[in-house]
Design a binder for these strands. Structure first.
Lengths: 339, 339
DNA sequence: GCCTCAATTGCAAACGTTTGCGTAAAATAT
DNA sequence: ATATTTTACGCAAACGTTTGCAATTGAGGC
């Protein structure tokens, strides 16, 4: 069944000790240069491949990391993964990917498996269930074992921890201010799932910007959605059917905004003339929908890169918990441009 | 640095042999029921976590699989991953994710690492570089070690192997036939990167459908693009600036079609009236662009599920190489509906 | 011929866990 | 009281690799 050849096998062929083979393959100078070459050539020929598992066991270091995400199908999440991969590739690590599907149970299960496999570190964006119910003990346990844990996007409650995030608050503030600058009077918000940090921060930035401009958040201009386009359909209809129609919408992400634009078009409402729109994430298609969607870019790929770099530096030296907050950029396109 | 407690540590506390602890934790009946409980409670208290690495070494089975993809940011790829995860979660496996970025060098490097970590199986969608240059030896080597390898989307050249794919040919045929049925006379194709199976199959389906309807592929109606929206901008302009303008476009994926619609709108060309459009993949946003995009759905998530299931069944019993081909579904929306 | 030194290679332990087999003690049967 | 079974646990090997230390060999100096 398994054809893999071990150092012991090679040792038998050469009638010598495994230690000699090991040294020869690692080019140890104590081994005769010709012996080395012969052994190396033979190893190549028979396709010897080092078994890292034994080393992991010996050195207590598996060169493997874990990444737990609530989902992976959104551009933001998969970009994080790609950024992370790019850095880790150079450093010799492998990445275990785990999709929690926002479930606390699954998240716990994955953490168990990752710990059992002795990953050297853990990147995690907490499941909504864990976050809502403040179920962080399973993660605290990990941290207590002095295993590096780096939070992505969604922080752990209370506990000081390493984090890489975009400043969602600032991004939302910028987006809202832009809509105000465009002369919008009644700015609605498609609010993400409650309990999730990202939703909360974006709402807060939205709210504080209104207050800073001497306005109030009006309850009937807030509609809750999930992160999917579908969920924004009814929400947008609700907004437009109320007595107090909005003349702008700030959405929790681009998908819900594109869905909103779809509904507005159906209703004969013009974007940006009647309703201006700004989204969040700046997905690649944002430039190509009609009208092109203004959006807050959160440098998704860089989040992954920075998280990976943070792990690498924490591995080398003991550092206090830190938060890396990336600046969002407002990309203005037609959907919010009023002349 | 490492706080993890081992069976040996527990054995010392209880002044007994490690084997006793092992058996107690595994609820072996040979161990006194009360001893068992005491040990189990203690293990729980000190947070004992089984070290799977030692077992992997012992049993030659790591309960870890590898997934190598050219990229992960497209909906199709991340959906495959999610489908795979769902099945593997139940079976106790972990998944190592590797993004080759279409590079042969990186792909080889990742395969090396995965082999060194003794993954129990490998899912791979070959990098374009490997595919173009017929560089498959690194993968053949893996198969020779009787390590299960399952190809996703892009098959290995020649060699009989396990595959899970969508029938791209059939999907393209259906899409083209639909455009013909809608009365389109000059159907253009935004052709994906050459050398990639997916591009080739879709072109072949397109071509054969034209032939089956007594038509020919016309060279100036074929434009090459990458899988990104950006790459379709110029390609679409080229199509529309030629003397022989198309009245329909079949695109290699939805992104290029949405970009094409963007260009057509700029040029004042009406979709579907002047140009009908059908894409491929049926990404979630396809329903929400204007006009809603007709597209061939390829059940991305199911590809991942079937691949995972195929691995599980191959693990249990020796099976001949097989190809699982999933039927594509044509989803007709406004972008191709001519009345 | 003896001592020293360098050049090579081997030995054994270690990482954490499981498991077949052996063994001691206790319980039961005769 | 002896023989037999049952109960409960320990021993040691195994997985593959590295590494400090010991050991062997040969050459060279005297």
């Amino acid at each position: 069944m398994n054809n893999s050849v071990s150092i012991k096998d090679i040792a038998k062929k050469f009638k010598c000790a495994p230690s000699t083979i090991s040294r020869a393959l690692n080019d140890h100078p104590a081994i005769n240069i010709e012996t080395r070459k012969t052994i190396q050539e033979y190893a190549l020929k028979v396709g010897y491949q080092k078994n890292t598992l034994s080393l992991s066991l010996l050195n207590n270091c598996s060169m493997t990391l874990g990444l737990i995400l609530p989902s992976i199908t959104h551009y933001h999440e998969s970009s994080i993964l790609e950024g992370m991969e790019e850095i880790l590739l150079k450093s010799g690590y492998l990445l275990n990917i785990c999709v929690s599907n926002e479930s606390h149970t699954i998240e716990k299960e994955y953490i168990d498996r990752l710990l059992a496999n002795r990953v050297d570190g853990l990147f995690i964006s907490m499941a909504q269930e864990s976050y809502d119910q403040q179920l962080g003990e399973h993660i605290d346990l990990v941290i207590q074992r002095s295993l590096p844990v780096i939070f992505i996007d969604r922080p752990n409650h209370g506990v000081a921890s390493d984090r890489v995030v975009t400043d969602d608050y600032q991004g939302a503030f910028m987006a809202t201010q832009h809509l105000i600058d465009m002369g919008c009077q009644r700015i609605a918000h498609l609010h993400g799932p409650s309990g999730i940090s990202v939703s909360q921060q974006r709402f807060l930035g939205f709210q504080d910007c209104l207050l800073a401009n001497g306005r109030q958040v009006e309850g009937d201009l807030i509609q809750y959605v999930h992160f999917s386009a579908e969920s924004a359909i009814q929400a947008t209809r609700n907004l437009m059917q109320s007595a107090h129609k909005p003349d702008a919408i700030f959405g929790v992400n681009d998908e819900v905004c594109i869905a909103a634009m779809f509904v507005l078009r159906e209703m004969g409402v013009s974007v940006p003339h009647d309703v201006a729109i700004v989204g969040f994430d700046d997905i690649p298609l944002a430039s190509f929908v009609h009208p092109p969607l203004s959006s807050v870019s959160r440098q998704s790929r860089r989040i992954g890169e920075e998280a990976a770099k943070l792990f690498l530096s924490k591995k080398d030296q003991k550092l206090d918990p830190m938060t890396i907050s990336l600046d969002p950029k407002l990309i203005i396109r037609e959907s919010s441009l009023r002349t």
